[in-house]
């Protein structure tokens, strides 16, 4: 076979596969939830779904702390958690604010204000651009995984959540991780970034509230040691100075002795459920008060 014929056949092989994927993308869309191998993947899945599905009533934006509050833990229907593990609450809030339709209520986590906005992510999810091709291997695995492990609804997990909360708190020894986190929290000075991000949040709140949405701020509980760390104290001070009105804050009232953290920062599963339930109680009161 001559080299030219070989190269033509090779190019044809590539073209056939690309065209097939192009047709499949046009027919089925690229929205199939890809399996997430990294937290970044998980973020993309969550945001893609937000763009594809009808606008929910309630949206949560935040960092990895809020990321742990899984949507199925909430009894509130039509709620989406857009928290980005490793990300800033401003990124999520900006994406929501840039969409043509807004949810009725936006909850903004104010624990982590030291991270800058993920501009490429905001840009990508502020426009309705579908990629030309999906990833065939990932799409196949996603279809397989979804078939085996379809996303759960609150009704499906409610009995298990009740059982989980009924159990005693975990006795997992998190000392190694908690010490490391505390060291980090004491070494970090988030003043500059926190001021900038608070300012951005103020502007975004003004913007979305002018368009009819309501915004409430939340602070998720840390372990006692982390609560009194340098970074947490500075962030809290800046956030409350910028938003002194207590009505702006959703109170998360829980029995702290019931809570456990994997590393002093992130809630374990049982504690995340307890905090979720406290948030739902506070949400109900806030809505009634309104």
């Amino acid at each position: 076979m001559s080299a030219v014929r070989w190269l033509i056949k090779c190019s044809a092989g590539a073209a056939i596969l690309l065209i097939a994927c192009g047709f499949a993308t046009a027919r089925f869309g690229s929205g199939l939830q890809m399996p997430a191998t990294t937290t970044r993947d998980g973020t993309l899945i969550t945001l893609s779904r937000y763009l594809r599905e009808p606008v929910p009533d309630v949206v949560l934006v935040g960092s990895s702390l809020t990321f742990r509050l899984k949507e199925e833990y909430f009894a509130t229907p039509s709620l989406r958690n857009l928290a980005l593990a490793g990300g800033s609450p401003v990124t999520g809030l900006k994406i929501v604010a840039n969409r043509p339709q807004l949810p009725g209520l936006i909850l903004v986590e104010m624990n982590v204000l030291s991270r800058s906005v993920d501009a490429p992510l905001v840009e990508r999810y502020s426009r309705d651009i579908e990629p030309l091709f999906f990833r065939p291997v990932r799409a196949a695995v996603a279809a397989y995984e979804q078939r085996r492990h379809a996303p759960l609804t609150h009704e499906q997990v409610a009995p298990e959540l009740r059982r989980l909360v009924g159990r005693p708190p975990s006795d997992f020894d998190n000392r190694v991780y908690a010490d490391r986190a505390l060291q980090q929290f004491n070494a970090e000075d988030p003043t500059d970034e926190a001021r900038i991000n608070t300012k951005r949040i103020e502007e975004l709140i003004r913007m979305v509230e002018q368009r009819g949405a309501r915004v409430l701020l939340i602070e998720l509980p840390y372990s006692e040691a982390i609560e009194s760390s340098r970074s947490a104290a500075i962030t809290r001070k800046i956030a409350h100075a910028a938003f002194p009105d207590s009505k702006r804050w959703l109170p998360v009232e829980v029995n702290r002795s019931e809570l456990r953290w994997t590393d002093g920062v992130h809630l374990d599963e049982r504690s995340a459920v307890i905090v979720t339930q406290a948030m739902e109680r506070a949400l109900a009161s806030a809505r009634m008060a309104k």
Binding site: L7, S11, A12, G13, L18, C21, F133, F134, R135, P136
Partner: peptide
């Protein structure tokens, strides 16, 4: 063989 190499080229772009 040429089609296989072509598919590899497409796959390395897509995936």
């Amino acid at each position: 063989e040429p089609y296989l190499y072509g598919s590899m080229a497409a796959l390395m772009y897509l995936e």
